[in-house]
Design a protein around this nucleic acid. Structure first.
Length: 320
DNA sequence: GGTGCCGGGGC
DNA sequence: GCCCCGGCACC
């Protein structure tokens, strides 16, 4: 997905969450050949928060005038804000016709990183860009990372890539061949997409002094004992601003014209305890009030600056 | 927009 | 190690 399109969709969903307190569901159809950015078709529907927070099924599909109204609004938005790659798909692809995801509320509440981290480290290198990532991520710009959590019942598997979680589901839950990505078109992948705040998590590890809650999720490479034994202590009882991506992936691949439907649900879940850690101030220390060489001597007397200032390092002459 | 300085790279 | 600089956060 083009970053601009992704941004538009996120903003629209965010607005809907604010305005009507309902979750936003947006669906992508893309070719399994990896050309999702070019072949994306999108539809957006709303589902009610009163339904099971993690279950996506026909019964939770939008009903009534409200949903229809939003659908119309969003349709207009898409047609006006995109270059035509987006359109409404009125087929039943917006609502999975396959069985409900095999998860439970209990499962969703007790979110812990799988103790098996083999696949995590294995998938790190291929984890980078799924659908929403910038082609060229900027350094230090955003420490959020997307993780994927298996939603099958009693499975807490968390992997760093969608392909990894799909492979996990295919092999572990569907009992299929682990060596290939072959799909017979009747696979249901239920897994959640979770944003991980690497900064907060890292800081949370060094200091567990709680301040205000923020949203994080498991990192890809941290040792699992933290999440197995300590995670409950880090969980917030209420996570009012918890942001959780839930991705339900259905593969309907026909022999001639394979179409793959990915359903993504972005929602704010008031009661979902998704490994919530306190937020901490930026590790970057605040700027001191002391004048540094640059201000004291000015650019014209740069030769009088301390070495560090000349090298754009922390001033050694006028320390805070 | 100016400043401080981290992170990274060239030599 | 020295030096430079892109880029970011802070002011």
């Amino acid at each position: 997905i083009h970053p601009c399109i992704s941004l538009v969709v996120h903003v629209l969903c965010w607005i809907m969450n604010i305005v009507i307190g309902q979750q936003c569901l947006y669906i992508y159809n893309y070719h399994p050949s990896g050309h999702a950015d070019k072949e994306v078709m999108a539809a957006t529907v709303l589902t009610s928060l009163s339904t099971s927070p993690m279950v996506l099924q026909p019964s939770s599909a939008p009903t009534g005038n409200t949903a229809r109204g939003w659908k119309e609004v969003l349709s207009a938005s898409y047609s006006s804000s995109t270059s035509g790659n987006w359109s409404w798909d009125n087929s039943d692809q917006s609502v999975p016709s396959t069985p409900s995801p095999p998860l439970s509320n209990e499962n969703s509440k007790n979110f812990l990183l799988s103790s098996n981290s083999d696949d995590i480290s294995e998938d790190i290198h291929e984890s980078t860009h799924f659908m929403f990532d910038d082609p060229i991520p900027r350094k230090r710009k955003n420490s959020m990372k997307v993780m994927f959590k298996c939603l099958w019942k009693n499975c807490e598997k968390v992997l760093s890539t969608s392909s990894g979680i799909q492979r996990h589901i295919r092999t572990v839950h569907l009992g299929r061949n682990s060596d290939s990505d072959y799909s017979d078109g009747e696979e249901d992948f239920y897994y959640s997409e979770i944003e991980v705040n690497m900064d907060s998590l890292t800081e949370g590890l060094s200091s567990l002094t709680p301040t205000s809650p923020t949203t994080v999720a498991p990192p890809p490479v941290f040792p699992s004992p933290l999440f197995d034994s300590h995670a409950p202590t880090l969980l917030s009882q209420s996570a009012p601003s918890t942001l959780c991506h839930i991705r339900t992936d259905h593969a309907y691949q026909g022999p001639v014209n394979p179409v793959r439907t990915v359903t993504t649900v972005e929602r704010r879940l008031p009661g979902l305890n998704v490994l919530t850690l306190p937020s901490y101030p930026s590790p970057r220390k605040p700027r001191g009030d002391a004048k540094k060489c640059r201000k004291v001597y000015g650019m014209e007397k740069k030769d009088m600056w301390c070495t560090a200032c000349r090298w754009k390092k922390a001033c050694q002459r006028f320390t805070d």
